[in-house]
Write a protein that binds this DNA or RNA. Sequence first.
DNA 1: ATGAAGATTGCCT
DNA 2: GGCAATCTTCATG
Length: 218
Amino acid sequence: MLIPREFFARPSVEVAPDLLGCVLENETADGLVAVELTEVEAYAGRSDPASHAYRGKTRRNAVMFGPPGHAYVYFTYGMHFCVNMVCLGEKGSASAVLLRAGAIIAGEDLARARRTRAPIPEGRARIASRDLARGPARLCQALGIDRSLDGADVCIPASALRMRTGAGNPARSAEIVTGPRVGVSSAAEIPWRFWYEGDPTVSVYRPHVPRRPKLVTP
DNA sequence: ATGAAGATTGCCT
DNA sequence: GGCAATCTTCATG
């Protein structure tokens, strides 16, 4: 069953935990890949310094300011995509839930093919199932999500990218744990991050190291 | 126009 | 644990 739009018409902090166990699927000419979500993170709008909507509407984040139930896909680090579900924003604001990790429940071969970079070196081990969508950029790569899906409506059957109910929701609701987002100091009183405790597909946090400024060699 | 940083990941020592 | 890859976006001059 497809998730109704009203589901997303709430603040992102309320939507985020309810998304765990739901299934995001993308259907392309190559086939269908489906991921059951195991880790998400909520972002608010103007009030949230870590949100892309913090400084107002721009070309990149325009979808965040639109109606709920659409995908906000952005490109980062010159090579990665990440996908969010747009939720209800206050007037002139915006909110969304970043999909950080999940378990592949359909189309695993296709997902692995997308995640395996060619040419395949002889000695390299094949990617473990749990690692196929373990992390926001990996999840997008496994599903084949790119910028062409920015703004896609996930609430209609005609869309290639859809969100539907899964076996894990609400069956696994007891496993949900929350915590503050890492790396963001403000608004630490609200738990922004939600995941299934002990689930092997939940991403591991890696502290971000700022890159050294490019130096000029004579 | 120019530069710096980024909701990350893979591979190196 | 460290660093490179790679390019878009935003802020500043």
